[in-house]
């Protein structure tokens, strides 16, 4: 009974993960292809949907804890799903932010060709995908890998920021567009942070170890 319900819960959080993933992908694709309809879909259809699912998952988790008083790994799983749920909902909000900025940008001439941003988005989406995959497969190695890739995203963000600053200095009329581009890259960077959180949570489910806030290195050393 319990495991049936826990499996249903897992399916639900995976469904939410996939939905959120597709939202990021759509908002970037919408930006590149200047597809207004796609961007509006993210804002008007997908985001409200994720809010509903978030509440649904919350209730499922609370009910499971109240009724079955799970212990050990089951407890870690449910608590982690509860946190992932929160993270995923935040990611959905950020995808919405990206779509909003994209809606602004597609109406205007391109500031510069989009080169780094799509790459950064691709890498971010992959991180999120891998973090969810690591949850599905209970794979702490993949999860730790996701956590390490956060640095790449940070590097992209810094790189994009530097570039945009030069544009803004040379041409004040570009500032508004540059800020929107920066907003997109900032949101992607935050999404990557949240994906890292999910990765850390997966390690916690499987191994019961906390690797947040720099404890990752310590545990590695301890294991060796």
């Amino acid at each position: 009974m319990f495991y049936e319900k826990l499996n249903k819960l897992k399916e639900k959080i995976i469904e939410q993960g996939n939905l959120v993933e597709s939202m990021i992908e759509k908002s970037i694709r919408g930006l590149i292809n200047k597809d207004k309809a796609l961007l509006l879909e993210v804002i008007q259809v997908d985001e409200p949907r994720t809010n509903e699912v978030e509440i649904e998952i919350d209730e499922m988790c609370i009910s499971l804890i109240a009724r079955f008083q799970p212990e050990a790994r089951d407890l870690r799983t449910i608590i982690t799903i509860l946190k992932m749920n929160n993270d995923l909902e935040r990611i959905a909000d950020m995808a919405e932010n990206i779509s909003e900025s994209a809606l602004f940008l597609i109406e205007r001439p391109l500031l510069k060709p989009l080169i780094d941003l799509p790459k950064m988005a691709e890498e971010t989406i992959r991180m999120l995908k891998d973090s969810i995959d690591s949850f599905i497969k209970n794979d702490p190695k993949l999860a730790k890998d996701v956590c390490e890739r956060d640095d790449i995203i940070d590097a992209y963000r810094d790189q994009i920021l530097r570039e945009l600053i030069t544009y803004m200095i040379s041409d004040p009329t570009s500032i508004e567009r540059a800020i929107h581009l920066e907003r997109i890259s900032r949101n992607l960077e935050r999404i990557a942070d949240l994906a890292t959180n999910i990765g850390e949570d997966v390690v916690y489910i499987v191994e019961g170890k906390v690797i947040k806030h720099g404890r990752y290195k310590d545990t590695e050393a301890g294991d060796a």
Binding site: M1, F2, A66, R67, F68, Q69
Partner: peptide, 9 residues
């Protein structure tokens, strides 16, 4: 009289 059982079943 077992709360847990009521919750589970």
């Amino acid at each position: 009289h077992n709360v847990g059982q009521a919750g589970r079943v």
